Amino acid sequence: MRTNKLRINQLSQETYKWYLTYLEAIDTRDVETYSRFLAEDCQMQSNNNPPVQGKAAIVQFLADYWKTFASLEHDLLNIYGSDSAFVLEALNHYKRNDGKDVTLKAVAFTDRNEAGFVTSVRFYTDTAELFA
């Protein structure tokens, strides 16, 4: 994960540390660790695709999705919002399964409940080049 381009961060220090750990689970594609951040009734939506409902379904979705590329690294640009609802603007650096490097602009909206578990994630990026 890269943080040297992070310009604006509106999260508290505690939530920022939590979020870096959350993103690290994504970057390492560790679905078991990632699942520990999710509320049981969490919902995830990518672009205009139908939402994935529930922690178990999200875990299965990500286990399958993360096999479609070789690696991912988040490059944080800005984090706006509060500790319970925020948006990340980032560059996502992928290595495709054919070895080609691809960088995509992305945003991810995250909501957390009072216990700190993720209840909703909506991420938006044009993945055409990743899967070309």
Rank of each mutant, 00 (worst) to 15 (best):
residue 82 S to H: 07
residue 90 A to N: 02
residue 81 G to L: 04
residue 42 C to H: 06
residue 111 D to A: 09
residue 10 Q to Y: 08
residue 55 K to E: 01
residue 122 R to Y: 11
residue 103 T to E: 10
residue 26 I to H: 12
residue 115 A to L: 13
residue 95 K to Q: 15
residue 38 L to M: 12
residue 28 T to M: 13
residue 84 S to M: 03
residue 125 T to F: 05
residue 65 Y to N: 04
residue 114 E to G: 04
residue 118 V to D: 05
residue 56 A to V: 09
residue 23 L to D: 09
residue 17 K to P: 00
residue 73 E to M: 00
residue 103 T to Q: 07
residue 122 R to H: 12
residue 7 R to F: 10
residue 118 V to N: 08
residue 24 E to Q: 14
residue 36 R to K: 15
residue 40 E to V: 12
residue 101 D to N: 07
residue 64 D to N: 14
residue 4 N to I: 05
residue 60 Q to F: 02
residue 38 L to D: 06
residue 10 Q to E: 15
residue 67 K to N: 07
residue 8 I to V: 15
residue 15 T to N: 15
residue 77 L to A: 03
residue 96 R to D: 07
residue 52 V to P: 00
residue 122 R to P: 01
residue 111 D to P: 01
residue 126 D to Q: 12
residue 23 L to F: 10
residue 9 N to I: 02
residue 112 R to M: 08
residue 114 E to P: 00
residue 37 F to Y: 15
residue 55 K to I: 01
residue 55 K to A: 00
residue 32 E to H: 12
residue 108 A to S: 10
residue 111 D to G: 02
residue 113 N to E: 09
residue 113 N to W: 12
residue 119 T to I: 15
residue 53 Q to M: 11
residue 89 E to H: 06
residue 22 Y to P: 00
residue 51 P to F: 09
residue 64 D to F: 09
residue 105 K to H: 07
residue 128 A to H: 13
residue 124 Y to M: 13
residue 30 D to P: 04
residue 31 V to Y: 10
residue 15 T to Q: 14
residue 21 T to K: 14
residue 5 K to D: 10
residue 49 N to A: 15
residue 31 V to A: 13
residue 85 A to E: 11
residue 72 L to C: 05
residue 131 F to W: 12
residue 96 R to N: 08
residue 80 Y to P: 00
residue 57 A to F: 03
residue 48 N to L: 12
residue 46 S to Y: 13
residue 42 C to D: 01
residue 18 W to R: 06
residue 122 R to Q: 08
residue 86 F to C: 03
residue 108 A to R: 04
residue 118 V to F: 13
residue 62 L to P: 00
residue 96 R to S: 06
residue 66 W to N: 01
